[in-house]
Write a protein that binds this DNA or RNA. Sequence first.
RNA 1: GGAGAGGUCGCAUAGUCCGGUCUAGUGCGCCAGUUUCGAAAACUGGUGUGUCGCAAGGCACCGAGGGUUCGAAUCCCUCCCUCUCCGCCA
Length: 448
Amino acid sequence: MLDIKFIRDNAEVVNKAITDKRVSLDLELLLQADERRRALMAETETLRATKNAVSKELPTLPEDQKKVKILEMKEVGDREMALQEDLRKTELEYQQLMLLVPNIPSPETPVGPDESGNIPWAYWSPELGGVDPKDTDKVAQIPTKFDFEIKDHVELGKSLDLIDLEKGTRTSGFRGYYLKNEAVLLQQGLMWLAMKKLQGKGFTLMIPPIKVKEFALTGAGFFPTGKAETYQIGNAAAFAEDAAKDPEFLAGTSEPSLLAYYADTILDEAQLPIQVCAATPCYRSEIGSYGKDTKGLYRVHEFMKVEQVVICKADINTADEWLEKLRAITEEIMQELKMPYRILNICTGDMGAGKYKMYDIETWMPSRNAFSETHSDSNLTDWQARRMGIKYRTKDGEVKHAFTLNNTAVASPRILIPILENYQQADGSVVVPEVLREYVGKDVITKK
RNA sequence: GGAGAGGUCGCAUAGUCCGGUCUAGUGCGCCAGUUUCGAAAACUGGUGUGUCGCAAGGCACCGAGGGUUCGAAUCCCUCCCUCUCCGCCA
C-alpha cells in the first residue's frame, strides 16, 4: 500500500509503475473514490459536530426547548444515516482499490515485460568464484561439467531410493512426493544449517504458525491478488457447511506470520533492525502453473523453507544495505554448498506489485541445462508495513511506517535438484556436499 | 465439549447495576520545568493512535461488528480473544 497523499501528488509516477509492473488497475477510479470519500467525510463530520454540540447542552435546557431540539436532532440523525451508508460503500471501494496499487520500483530495477527482462547481476561457481556477467567467456565456464551421460534428479532419486513420486501422487495428488532415506537427512540438514547460520548473523529463530488468518496474507501483500495461489482450510465439518465463515489459510511462506508478529505495533527505533527467521512448511496451490514444470521436485504444493525477514527503519539506504546483506547471507550458504549460481536483477514485469527491488538467486540445474530460481531477495520499503500496521517511533517522537525485506535462506526439496544433479558421479552415486555430511552421516550416497 | 469470570488512552486500575459536567478519574511509568554542585526526593505542567483540513480546528477509537436512543465505555444482539475449573485428547 502507498500513502494516498503520495498517490494524489504523483499520479504519473504511480501510473508508470502500474504499466511497468503490468498491474491491472485504473488509477482514475481510485482517485475519484478518494475524492468522493473525502467529500462525504467532511459532510458527515459536520453533522456529527452539530449533534455532539447539541447533546452536550441538551440536559441544561428547559423541557419545551428540549423537545424542539430533540426533533431537530432526529432529522440531523436521519441525514447522517443516509450519508453514512454512501460513505461506507465508497470507503470499501476505495480500500479495495488501494490494495491494488503497486510499489514504485527502484531506479536500478530494469523495466521489462516478464522474466526475459531480468538482468544477470553476478555469477559464481566453486572453481571460478565470482564472475562478472560481462565476462561472457568465463560465464560460459560456470555450469558443472560432466564426462559421462548425466541423470536428472528424478532418475537419481529413484535409483538411490531417495524420492518416490508415484506413491506421492497416489497419496497426495498431483505434484505429491515422498522423500526417503538420505534425501530426508539432506533436507533436515539444510534446514538446520540455514537456521544455525542465521542465528549466528543475529536473527531471532521462530517457529511461527503457517495456518494464518486473512489479515496476515493481506498485510504481507499476497491478498487479494494471490488468492488463487493459496489453500483455504477449516474444520472439515464446518467447511462443508460454509467455507467462507471464518476462513483460515495455509501460507505459501512464513513471511506473513513473521511480519504479522509485529502487526499493528509501534516499535521503538532502538528495537530496529528486527531480524527474524523461520523454518516452516509452505503451501502453494500452483493453480496458475498447470502443465508447468510437471516433472520431479521443481514445482510442488508443499515444501520446507527457511525464510529471513528484516524490519528496518524507513531509510532507503539502510533498506538497500539490508537487501545486499540478505543476498550475501544466502550466497554464503550457496558457496558452502559449492554449487554454481547466478543472481538476477529482477525487472518490473517479473516482480511482485509490492516490491521496490528484487534479486532472484538461480542455481545451476544440469538436467534443465539452465540456472533456475531457488531463492528470492526483496526490498518492499514501507508497502507491506502500511498494510500490516508496522510502525516505529523515531528518537524525535515521530511515528513512521517501517521498511521490510525478506529473502530465502534455503527451500527444499527444490534445492535437492541441483544438489543431486551437480554432485552426481559416473557410477550413479551422489557425493554429499561437505557441509551436509555430518547430518547425512556419509560422504557418498550409493545404491542400497 | 461443559461451567464461570473478564477484555477501559504504555502498565495497573476506577467508571458499566441506574445512559447525559466521562472530550474517561487515579496510581505507576515517561518527558519538561522548578529546586540542586550534580542527582534523588518533592512540587508544577505535559504525556495515545488514526483520519480530514493550508490552517484554526473537526471527527473517530473504552476487544470487533451491528442495533436501540436526540445522546452509549455504560442498554440489546452477534462474533473474537484471555483467564479459572471440569471433561476429553496428542
